[in-house]
């Protein structure tokens, strides 16, 4: 028995390199299992306890803070190259409680539970009094802006007809009065110029997703829309490592019907294809 008041766990510095390795493994795991929204990046390690694990290894019990980046979870850009969403863009924080097993020098995530929350309106106003605040993604004006932007995009497209997959975030801009929206689209088997009945279009078997940013501005007697979309290169479906050690196909319909498949564990670098701009 060890001397002194043995509490069962070891304490490490939150900035200990081993602690950071465990935290980065947890963030990577969380990002690979997000089904919508944006990748998160490690901001701060709040707490860490290291428990011995029988018969081998040790378990890092941690609390970590993350920040939303501007990279969508379907974006193959490596996390290290993803800019953090700034305060004036209405930042979003994540709070995670994770258990990470270290065994034979390897980190494996056993569990992860995260809650995300936007910065308070008061805090945004402090740094940027005129900045637009996040609004619910199902806001009527937001949905209209996304649909109008996608229609404009398809009207200018010489390729596939794209369908709306997800509205990822949106802000109502006070001056000039406009709606800013970021959304995900997916290519269908229809040709954009020839579509007559959208309900007959099907998503491609090799899913091809795109990410769009649009601003819809109200004008006297009408509205104006500006949209830019980035189409991601088709990504192979790879088995996703699970906490219980089994592998699961990312797009397995038994798990998440009709949900976009998460990006691969090691996405190819520099695989972005820039689509048309309207």
């Amino acid at each position: 028995a060890p001397h002194g008041p043995w509490v069962g766990y070891l304490v490490l510095n939150c900035d200990d390199p081993e602690t950071e390795q465990a935290a980065l493994a947890a963030v990577d795991y969380v990002n690979r299992h997000l089904l919508w929204g944006f990748k998160h990046i490690l901001n701060q390690i709040d707490k860490v306890r290291v428990w011995p694990r029988r018969p081998f290894g040790e378990v890092f019990e941690m609390e970590i803070d993350t920040l939303e980046t501007t990279c969508h979870v379907l974006d193959p850009t490596p996390l290290a190259n993803c800019p953090v969403r700034q305060l004036h863009e209405h930042a979003v924080e994540g709070d995670c409680k994770v258990h990470v097993l270290k065994q034979d020098g390897q980190f494996h995530v056993l569990s992860a539970k995260c809650d995300s929350s936007p910065d308070s309106a008061e805090d945004v106003r402090k740094v940027c009094p005129g900045c637009a605040l996040l609004v619910p993604r199902n806001n009527t004006a937001v949905v209209h802006a996304a649909e109008a932007a996608l229609a404009a995009f398809n009207a200018q497209s010489n390729g596939s007809y794209f369908q709306l997959v997800e509205i990822s975030r949106a802000q109502l801009v006070p001056l000039p009065e406009s709606t800013y929206v970021e959304f995900v689209v997916a290519a269908t088997d229809c040709v954009a110029k020839e579509v007559t009945d959208q309900s007959q279009c099907n998503l491609l078997a090799d899913k091809q997703y795109g990410f769009c940013k649009a601003t819809l501005t109200k004008k006297l007697g009408g509205e104006e829309v500006a949209v830019t979309c980035t189409v991601f290169q088709t990504q192979p479906v790879v088995p996703q490592p699970q906490p219980d050690g089994t592998n699961q196909t990312a797009s397995s319909p038994a798990v998440v019907p009709d949900a976009p498949s998460p990006p691969p564990a090691s996405p190819p670098a520099a695989s972005l294809v820039v689509g048309p701009m309207v």
Partner: peptide
């Protein structure tokens, strides 16, 4: 620590430092 010469000063492991550094900004 300040001590008289010849007087032993208790030294132990530094307490762990948590929370860790903020990499970007605090929300």
């Amino acid at each position: 620590s300040v001590a008289q010469p010849g007087v032993a000063v208790a030294t132990g492991p530094a307490p762990p430092v948590c929370p860790g550094r903020i990499r970007y900004f605090k929300v």
